[in-house]
Each structure stands twice: as structure tokens, then as C-alpha cells.
Amino acid sequence: MNASPLRLPDAGSIEAVLADLDPASADNDLVPALAHAFPGFQFSVARIDDDYWRDTRSVIRPDGTRIGELRPWMTAELAKDGGAIDALWRRLKETDLQITEWRGTSAFVFAPTGPGAADYVQIALGREIEWRAGPIVNPNYRPFGQEELLDPSWPRTDRPPQSDRLAGPVYRLLGRAGGAVIHVRSFLDRCGRIEREKREAKRPEMEGRVIREVGPWGTRETPFLEVVPDWFDYVPRELRFFRDWEDSSARPHRVFEHWALDVRDYTHKGEREVGFVPRPLQPLAERLAPPKDASIHILMDRIEDVDREIGLPFGWFFLMIHGHWVDPDVGLAIAQGLKAQRVRLPDPDARVLLRWADRTYRF
């Protein structure tokens, strides 16, 4: 008798788990609570320092007593003064009222569903803490307009002391466009399908398109699809990322041990946009660019240092296609060295790099 398939985590059930977490122990309880709600999965969590601020603020007294949310409360107070911003500011700066702010960082939860590079679930969360931000208005400067009262930007931006911590941490699903909870392999299938549908919809246009050249011979027109015969076979970079992982020395490692995926899936002006940008869980201490007048062999030493630093064979390649940490000229230089037989890489990595150099992609 076959075992029943595991129930994949869904947004509603995850939100119920998060709502039951006690902020005092949320960090420790998150993974066990998810494992209890979804038996059979082995969850892990990774946090990223990418501070963000929620637009939700509260009005409190110095002892922490809550009066209400800032925007509706301030709107009502402004109405009491007939919309006179100056009068409201003068009145409020003499009070001891304060405002709070919610600061958050991203947290990603992962759970494998199979042996393949893309066989896992990713859950994008925000880990948020409420802090005392400062007095209700800036006592030294009159606000320029109503929005500065409703959404003040002047409170301090440095990290507040623990004594100003009011609530949290609390976890919540981030409002990422269609990507808070994904099964990665299914998401990749979606990426490929959407791209094929987009291109197929343009078939009549592309079959009629020509490239016009003007020269001493006159005007010559060449059908676009003769110049780019594989236009309909385009593979999105998201699929190439995972294919390159599985074809390289990185394959024994799980993608989610090193990368989180910043996913998007939305419709803009009637067109579906779907994809992701990979985010390294362990960025490099310094960006790697090809040093001037350095030999290819020194560059090979540098990429080995990168792989050791992040604990991933061929890791430098994936940091390179991320688009920030390793300059693409590094990959192109090494590809040239491979073609000239001046340097060597493991055969799988050499094939992946040369394939990339032939048709580059970056995020």
C-alpha cells in the first residue's frame, strides 16, 4: 500500500501557525511549530539582514499605554484643529505622546521534498519587532504637510536600544507578489510555461519580422527567425540557474543552504511577470573583479578562495550570475583560459562555464 503524499504547506495554514507563536519564544518555536503542522517535512530557517520598515505605527504614552494607530488618530486630531497643521504641531509637541515603528528583516524557511536541486519548499517571512521611535512630532521642525504627520520620516534611523523594544519578534508571511510560499520545482515549471506562452503569442509577429540591412549592394532583408532560429526555444535564466547547479560541482549541496529566492509573480499591464532573483545567504566580504595586469592563474587562485569562503564548490560562478559579488569579466576570462588550455576546471564546471560564456545571463 502506497503512503499518502505529504501535504505541501499552504499560506493559510502557515499564517495560523505564525499567529499561535509566542513572541517570547518565536525564534526557537518557529521550526518545531511548522514541523508539527506539516508532518514529514524537515524545516530549516535562514535570516537575512535587510532591514525594512512597515508603514504601521502606533501612538503610545511613555508608560507604553496604547492610544491607537497613528494614521487614523492623527487624522482625527488634525480635524480638531480644522486642518491647521501649525496649530496641531504646536499642541502635540507639548505633550508626552510617542510613536512606535515596526522594523523587520527577511527570514526564509526551507523544506526539501526530493533529491533534486529544485525539490524544496520555500516560505518567505518577515521577522518584525516594534520599537519606541520618538515623540509624536519633531519638536524642532514644523511638518511641511499632512503626510509628514501621518507617515513621519524624521525619527532616528540608527538601531534603538533594547530598552525601547515594545513587542516581538513576530513572524508573518511577506507580501511578496505571488511568492510567499512556493514549491520551487513547480515554480520553475511555471516560469518555463509562461515564457513559452508569451513567445508563442508573438509567433505571427516574429514570423513577419525582418532585419533590414543597407549597404553598397542596396537594401537586403533577412527574416528575423533565420538570424535567431532558436528564439522560440529561449530558456529563462531561472531555469538555467538550477540546470547549471545540477550540472556542476555544486550538485551535492542543497541550493537553499546557500541561496534564498526573491520571487515575483504578478500581472502588469496585462502581461504576466514571473521569476526570481537569488539572494546569497553568505555574501562575500569583498567583491571579486579581475585585477589589472594579473595572470589568469592568480584569478584561478582567487575563485578558489571564494569557494572556500562560502563553502561551496563552483560557488564563485553562482555569485557571478547573481550580478554583484563576482564580476562577469572573471567568468569570461576563465572561459578564455579554458579554450586556450591555459587553465583547468573540473569537467562539469568547465562545460557549465563555457555554456554560460556562449550565452551569458545574470540576475
Rank of each mutant, 00 (worst) to 15 (best):
D327E: 11
E273V: 15
R7Y: 06
M1E: 13
A177P: 13
V121C: 11
P115E: 09
V352R: 02
V352D: 04
F41W: 07
D327M: 05
I296Y: 00
E147N: 14
I48A: 15
P313Y: 07
D347Q: 15
Q162H: 13
V109D: 00
D151N: 10
P328K: 01
P313F: 10
H268W: 10
N138E: 03
V31I: 14
A84R: 15
W89I: 10
H258E: 07
H253S: 14
T105V: 08
W131V: 07
D349Y: 02
L70S: 09
M320H: 10
K292W: 03
R57K: 13
L299R: 02
G331E: 09
G337C: 00
G40A: 00
R240S: 05
A260M: 05
R172Y: 14
A167T: 01
W89V: 12
R57F: 07
L150H: 09
Q336T: 11
F256L: 02
G218L: 08
P169L: 13
D349T: 04
G331A: 05
G331T: 06
I298R: 15
R142D: 09
R287K: 12
P139F: 02
A107I: 04
D151A: 12
R185H: 14
E271C: 14
G270K: 05
I123Q: 07
A124M: 01
E197L: 14
T360S: 10
W53L: 15
A177L: 09
G114R: 01
L21Y: 05
S58Q: 14
R61S: 12
M1H: 14
D63W: 04
G215S: 09
G116Y: 00
A133V: 05
E148C: 12
P223G: 04
A33I: 04
P115H: 03
A201S: 14
G168M: 08
I14Y: 03
G323R: 07
D349F: 02
L166N: 06
M1P: 08
R240N: 06
R279K: 15
W131M: 10
R264L: 06
R90D: 15
A167Y: 04
G68V: 06
V17S: 01
R127D: 00
L284M: 08
